[in-house]
Design a protein around this nucleic acid. Sequence first.
DNA 1: TGGTTCATGTAATGCGTTACATGATTAC
DNA 2: GTAATCATGTAACGCATTACATGAACCA
Lengths: 181, 181
Amino acid sequence: MSLPHAILTALLEKPSSGLDLTRRFDRSIGYFWSATHQQIYRELGRLEAEGHIRALPAAQPARGQKKAYEVLPAGRAELARWTAAPQDPKPHRDALLLRLRAAAVVGTAGLEADLRRHRELHRRQLAEYEEIEKRDFPPGDDSAQARLQHLVLRAGIELETFWIQWLTEALEDLPVVEDTP
Amino acid sequence: MSLPHAILTALLEKPSSGLDLTRRFDRSIGYFWSATHQQIYRELGRLEAEGHIRALPAAQPARGQKKAYEVLPAGRAELARWTAAPQDPKPHRDALLLRLRAAAVVGTAGLEADLRRHRELHRRQLAEYEEIEKRDFPPGDDSAQARLQHLVLRAGIELETFWIQWLTEALEDLPVVEDTP
DNA sequence: TGGTTCATGTAATGCGTTACATGATTAC
DNA sequence: GTAATCATGTAACGCATTACATGAACCA
C-alpha cells in the first residue's frame, strides 16, 4: 500500500498530470517505486475521491485534455502519518538468485550469457545514477532536503555497485553443472 | 511467474508435502522467494494438473493426510527451460527509500526509530545467514552444487551487510526536516 | 485526410494476501 | 473425550500487468 504515498510525494514535489507522473515514475521516483500509467490513473481517481488531491481548476475536462493535480491538506496529513508509522520490510524476491539455485539442480546451461547481460544492465543503471549525482548533488549543497535525497540516491548507487561486483565474482566462479535427469 | 519454478526446485532438492514446502519457504528458499501456504497449495494443484509433478503413491488421500509430491520429467524439463531463458530484472520496490523521499517533503518525525528497528532486523538476518554459512559451507567443500548455493548465500550476506552500513550512515547523517504545511 | 504522438482511460487476468474452514493426530 | 496442533485446503479481495480503446493536437 505505498503507491498512493509515492504519488502524494511526487505531487507535493511538483503538481503534475497523469502523464507527467508516468514520466517521473520512469526515472526518479520509479528507481525505487515503479508504476505504470494504468496504475497511476487508477490511483489518482481514488486519491481524488478520498479528498487527498484535487484537479487544478485551470484545465479539467475530458479525454485527451491534460489534467493536473495538487495535494490537499488531508493528503499531506496522510503522507506524514504514513511516513512516520513503523513498517516491516517486505520479503525479497529475486528471480536471478532463484535461477542459480535451480541451476544447481538442473544444470547451468544458458546462465552465463544472462549473467553477463544483467551485469551490463546494472552498469548502465549505475552510470545513470552517477550522472544524476554529478548533476543534482554537487559538493557543498547541504540543505536538509538535498541530504535526504542524496542518501536515497547513494543507496541506489551502492546497490548497483554491489550487483556488478557480485555478478563479476559469480561469472569468475561459475561451475559447470550438467543436467542429468 | 517464478513461484512454480521455486517449487519445482524445492521438490527436486527433496520431495515434500505442502507443509514441508511451507516450512522450507520460511527459511532457505524463502530468503529470496517468499510464499505462503495458500500460494503453495494452489500452485501444487496447478503443477499436478499440468503433469509437472505428481503425488507420491505412498500416501495420497484427503484432508488432514500428508501428501508428498515429486517432480516428473516434464517438470524438470520446464525448470531447465526457465533457468536457461533470459529474463529482465524486475523494477525494485523499496518502501523505506520512498519514506525517506517523502520525509524530505513532509518532515522526518518518527523516522529515526524505524530506521534503528530496520537495522536491528537486518542484523538478525545477517546473523542467521552467517550461522548457515558456518554450518553448511565449511571451507574446503567445492562441489559444483555447493559453490552455486554458496554464491546465493553470499549475495544474501552482502546485501544485509550493505543495508546495515547504509542505515548506520543514514542515522548519523539524518537531518531534521520540519513539517511545514 | 491520414498518420503519429499526446493524453486519459477501460477491461481482463493473475499473483499475493488475509480470513476462514475442515479433517486427522497427539497430549492431557 | 476434548483441546491443541498438524495438515490441507476454499473464498474474497486487492494490487500489478497486459492488452486494448478513445479523444485531441500536430504534421505531412
